[in-house]
Every structure is written in C-alpha cells, then in structure tokens.
C-alpha cells in the first residue's frame, strides 16, 4: 500500500484505515486528500446519491440496484471491520422500570429537553467507560491505546445506510446536554449536514434498534474502537418476584468486544456497571 507520510499521520489520528482507500495520487498513491475525503465519506458521499429510476414491477425477476456511495463504503469497510477483529459478545438483561419512571418524571418537567431511553444509555455508558478504561480502548498493533475521554459514536439509521456521528466528551455531559446534542447530531445526520470532524474520533459506539421492536442483536465493531453496545427495545415482560409474577420493563443489551483489547470478564464487568447505572438511575443524575 502506497501512502504519503502526511496521509499516514492524518489517517492514524482520524482513525481511517488506509487499506480501505483508493489512492488518487501519482501511481495510485494515497494522499492527504483521500484520507480527508474518506473521513468525511458517509455524509459527503450520501449527498451525491442518485436514486435509480423506478422500473416497472413484475417485468423482471430481479434487478441490480447500483451501489450508492454509502452502500459501497459500507460494503468495503464491514468485512475489514469484522474479519480481522476477533469479536466476542456478552449480553445482559437490564430492569428498566425505575429508569422508565425517572424518564417520565423528567419529561413531565417544563422547560427541560425530552430525554430518550438512548440518552439514558449513552449517559450510563459514558460513566461506566470512566470506571472501565480498558473498554474505552483501541488496538494499535503493538499497544493498546486507552482513552481518557469517552467520545461516543451513536449509530443513526438512514434510508439508504447508516452513519455514526460522535458525541464528544460524553463523560462530562449531563443527561440534558446529551439529549440536546444527540438529537442535533441525528437530525443533521439525516439532513447530511454533519461536518467531517463530527464523524470521526469515537472511542466507543452505541447502536440502538429499540425503535424497530428488536429484542436483541449484536453489532459489528467500528475499528479502531474496541467495543460497541447493541441495544434492543424496552419490553414489558412477566417478571418473577417473591410475591409471584409481575409485569416489568426489560431491555437486552449486547456488548461486542475486540478480544485483542479485552477479555470476557472485562466486558462483563463493564456491562454489569452499565446495568447497575440504569437500574439505579439516580446515579445518572449525580
């Protein structure tokens, strides 16, 4: 792989994998512009998406849809995210009754931003990452880089793909700040109006498919991050209590971990803390 020294440095800092890039320099050399474009690709490329002309249904048995730039980027990156990174998964069930209650109370307050379940999860994850720096980490070939700040990538589904804007310094932000900022990021993600620097530099990601009534799923890690949390829907389920059977709200969360960075127990302890924070949600406020 040929890449200019400056392209290599910028790629290392922006977390861009040079192996995924096509160089535009002399002889196919990867130059600075290629890296900067790649760091911006999901948003920038999406703006240029052409919608294929609708074909008459029922004429052909199938049709080949041209890859949009975003689909092409996802197709190129995912095998390189999944194959070389040894994933393992830990799943935990979280009792969301108190968190649900707290959220309803918060949302009843006048003049406060609306808090979503995902905002609670982001806050819990950010706090837990500070307790478990080994999870807020990245494999660097000859070292494991442990980050001191939690920059949380929040996957946003788009009609034709997905994009992961980054909520920076989540550990230092209140629930209200997280709510306002992540809504702004999501809205601008859908409007394809994110800036390059808002799409790179995450240290950990969260993917939430709860709004699609998904019970649980596992996500692919977004290198060079070390882990990603896949969050399902909050469901009302029968719960066994001392008194018999009751109805409770439960959420299943699955952590995908890079085994080069951490081991099962480390991932499990982190998830346990996320669970505790959500089950004792007043901790999210202090």
């Amino acid at each position: 792989m040929k890449a200019s020294p400056l392209a290599r440095k910028i790629a290392a800092q922006a977390g861009v994998d040079l192996r995924l890039l096509q160089g535009s320099g002399p002889g196919g050399r990867i130059i600075r512009r290629d890296v900067e474009t790649a760091a911006a690709t999901p948003g920038a490329a999406a703006a240029a998406v052409a919608i294929p002309a609708t074909r008459q249904p029922g004429v052909d048995e199938y049709e080949d849809m041209a890859l949009t730039p975003m689909r092409a980027a996802i197709a190129r990156r995912m095998p390189l995210a999944k194959a070389p990174v040894p994933h393992f998964y830990v799943t935990s069930e979280v009792a969301m009754d108190r968190a649900w209650q707290l959220r309803e109370e918060l949302n009843a307050l006048e003049g406060q931003p609306r808090i979503s379940v995902n905002d609670l999860v982001v806050r819990a994850v950010a706090l837990a990452l500070m307790q478990h720096p080994g999870v807020n980490a990245s494999f660097q070939g000859d070292a494991v880089r442990v980050y001191h700040r939690a920059h949380v990538g929040i996957a946003v589904a788009l009609d034709d793909g997905l994009i992961t804007p980054v909520l920076r310094d989540a550990q230092a932000k209140s629930l209200a700040e997280i709510a306002v900022e992540s809504r702004d990021l999501a809205e601008r993600a859908r409007a394809r109006k994110l800036r390059v620097n808002e799409l790179s530099g995450a240290t950990f990601s969260i993917s939430n498919l709860g709004m699609f009534d998904v019970t649980e799923f596992s996500a692919i890690i977004n290198p060079p991050e070390g882990a990603i949390l896949a969050v399902g829907a909050v469901r009302r389920v029968p719960v066994v209590t001392d008194a018999g059977v009751d109805v409770g709200r439960r959420l299943l969360a699955t952590l995908s971990c890079d085994h080069r960075v951490m081991d099962g127990a480390m991932g499990a302890r982190f998830l346990q803390d996320v669970k505790r924070l959500l089950e004792e949600p007043l901790r999210l406020l202090v």
């Binding site: 200019s4 020294p5 400056l6 392209a7 440095k9 130059i31 600075r32």
Partner: peptide
C-alpha cells in the same frame, strides 16, 4: 509535493 512531514 510528496506530502513529506518534518520527520522525512
């Protein structure tokens, strides 16, 4: 032109 850095 080669995008060298101070290191090179």
């Amino acid at each position: 032109t080669l995008e060298a850095t101070v290191e090179e």
